[in-house]
Each structure stands twice: as C-alpha cells, then as structure tokens.
Design a protein around this nucleic acid. Structure first.
Lengths: 207, 207
DNA sequence: CGGCCGTTGTTAATTATTTGACAAATCATT
DNA sequence: AATGATTTGTCAAATAATTAACAACGGCCG
C-alpha cells in the first residue's frame, strides 16, 4: 500500500464515500468494482486502481465489503478525526451553511463563527455562537482550530487569509471569488468558486 | 484556431476571465503570459497553449491586450448571451444565491424561482418571483430557459432532474449532494458538491 | 474436493495534460 | 533603419492519468 496518491484520486474519494454510504443504507453488503463503476459512472479499472493506492480492500472472486470500504475511506479522508473549524463572516451564505450544512459528516466540528455586525455578534445560528472578529486571535490561539470557512466579503478575503495562516490554521474553505496566494505558509486552500462553476456551465450550454 | 479544447482548458477559462477583469479594473492595459502566469499561479507555457486553442490573441514582443482578451474569453464562455435560467427550490441556499449571487455576470438571467412552500410562493427574493412548482411545465415550455439551478432537498433531485431534462433544459447547476444520471438526455450537469469539497480539505489537513 | 467462474491487484499500453524549447514576429531605442 | 530585448505560437518532450489486459486468488457448485 501507500503508493503515490494523485490529486485526481483524492478528489474522487468523497464520491466513493458517498456512494458506499448510500449502498450501505440500501442494505447492500458487498459490491464489485464493475457494479460500482456502473453506478458511479466510472470504469472498473479506475476504481480498482484508485482503491489500491491505499491497500487491498477487496477480495478476488468476491468484491468489496461495502461497510468496510466506506469506513476505510472515511478513515483515509480523516472524517473520524473531528477537527475543529471556525467560520469567518456570517452573512447569508455563512448562515445558509450554518443552518443547512452538516460539518460533522465532513469531519469537522464548527466551534465558533466570527463577524463584525452587531446583528450577528452574540447570537447563535444553527447551534454555533458568533463572536466579534476582534476575539479571533485569542480564540484561535487557545482552541487551535485547524480549518477556517471564509464566507466574508471578497475585499477582506486576502487579508483575513494571511491572518489565519499566521495564526497556524491548516486549511481554508474559501467561498470568496478570489484566488488566495499564501506562498510559503503550509495552508491548503479549497475553493468553492460558484461563478467559475456556473460559467463553465454557460460554456457547455452555448457550445 | 479551433484546436481540440480539453475539459482542463474549459475549467480554467473562468479563472482567466476573473483575473483579466481584475487587471482591467486596475488599469492594466497589456500583459505578457509570463506576468499573468505569476499572478495566476500557472506556467507561461500553459497560458499560451490554453489561449491558443481559440486563436492567436497575443502579439509577439507585446503580449496580450487585457480588455480584448477578457472580452474574447467572455464571448467564448458565452457570458454575453444572457441565457434564461430558473431556480428549483427556494430554501436557505436558494435564497442566499438569489440575494448574493450575480447570475448576470455568469451569463444568465434568472427569470423565475419555483417552490412548494406557501412561505415562498408568490414572493420575490432578490428581484426574482417565486411560483408554485405546479406551474413549472407551462412556464418552461413558454419561456424556454436553458438552465436550471437545483437547490431543493436531495430526495427530490433525481426526479426533478429528469423532469427538467424532459422539458428540454440544457444545463443543470446542481447544489444537491447527489450524482444525477441523465443518460441519453443532452443535458450538462455542473455539480457544486459542498461536502466533497470539504472532505477533500479534511484529507489535506490530516495528511 | 476439484474445476469453473468471478473478481481482484498489478503491470503495460494508451491517452491526456503540462512543460520546455525555440524560430519568427514585434517593439523599443538609438 | 538597424540592433537588441521581448514575447508569442507551436512543436516536441516529459509527465500524469486513464484504460486495457491478465495472472492469481478465492468463492461456489456439483
């Protein structure tokens, strides 16, 4: 096991997890790479190769045990680690996430949100308390969240990102339509660029 | 011009557009592939090759004209076409998009939203009127929107997607955490999988 | 308990994508 | 107008990712 894991494989892992979890709910106990491929719209070959990066989870002549494989992938992704996360910016998108999105299912515990507006500060949304952004440093240094969700106005994104990187945050989930450059800092930025996504769709439609 | 355009290139186009638009706002009139590469975190070679799929927009010894190139890319993406779009499901995420997201900048006009809840039906959010889902067929057949934004509960996503495909919608912007299979139908699905994105970040943090 | 069938893990071939290199074109300067 | 400094477009090389092929293994049935 432990061959070189490419970015392409990592980006597929959540999809495997999702489908395996569904299969498990459907009561399916085992599955072959072939059937899974049909279901997921991939090739059997790719699935076998992907999974084999992490070790031989299958059995010849039998296939893969659905629950076992799901749990293995959860463990590879680190979903069981319950890392702490904070949110910066409690606007409409931030609130939509707080109310509708289950951070726990993705391996995180959202422990606090930060904002400047008196409308939000001191209030709780979806069970997460909002503090004033001035308390950020103290909170991060004592609680050591590993991840920050960036849902603030784009003009403040770059500054906030450096501030977070300086404080030792390891990952930024960026909802701002800005490319964050944090050269040197050991921070992974995962972008959710709505506009880029919709523009891509625009291209396909007009193609 | 008109070489084979790979998916990888298409996914980068919005990013080019974004950076060029920023440069334009900053008053930069021309840029070389080298400078743009530094700014965007790509290689100069890649930029030249990407752009050359669509034609020679640059000039040797000079570089690229920022506004011209931005407009060319907008045109390639089809941002100037103002295709009609509808939204299915006006929950918190739907509303967050209606209020905060500029569909026009991405080439679409969001002409109507649909929902079942009496709390939303008949009301307008961010300037978009919400109708009852029962009026979907009639509306689509008369207005012919090319794109649908799927922001409804995941259990209804698959059925709604087929319904939309049957009605002739060309693209689906899917916010549901479900993989839509519309085999045969000429529909392009662009997914915004929040959970997949965050799980990827989880992997990187725990790596 | 032996042979066939299904299915994996793995290696090799293919295809896709990125990077490197450089001739040809243009600009800037004198 | 000639020279040197830039910078593109493009072709070739290198790298990455996907697909195909198959030997080896284990389940299943008679």
């Amino acid at each position: 096991m432990d061959k070189k894991v490419s970015i392409a494989v990592v980006r597929r892992l959540p999809k495997y997890y999702r489908h395996l979890d569904e299969l498990s709910s459907e009561g399916v106990a085992r599955i072959s790479s072939g059937s899974l491929a049909v279901r997921m719209g991939l090739t059997a070959s790719q699935i076998r190769q992907d999974l084999n990066c992490f070790g031989g989870f299958g059995q010849q002549g039998y296939g893969y045990n659905v629950e076992r494989l799901r749990d293995e992938i959860a463990s590879i992704l680190g979903l069981d680690r319950r890392a702490k996360a904070i949110m910066i910016g409690v606007g409409r998108i931030g609130k939509a996430l707080l109310y509708n999105f289950d951070f726990r299912l993705c391996g995180f515990e959202l422990v606090r949100a930060f904002d400047v507006s008196p409308d939000s500060v001191g209030r709780s949304f979806g069970g997460v308390m909002t503090a004033h952004i001035g308390e950020l440093e103290e909170f991060v240094l004592s609680e050591r969240p590993q991840c920050a969700v960036l849902t603030l106005p784009r003009e403040n994104a770059a500054t906030m990102a450096s501030r977070l990187a300086f404080l030792g945050v390891k990952g930024i989930w960026n909802f701002t339509n800005v490319d964050l450059h944090l050269d040197g800092a050991a921070v992974w930025v995962e972008n959710v660029h709505f506009a880029d996504s919709l523009m891509t769709l625009c291209y396909r439609i007009n193609e």
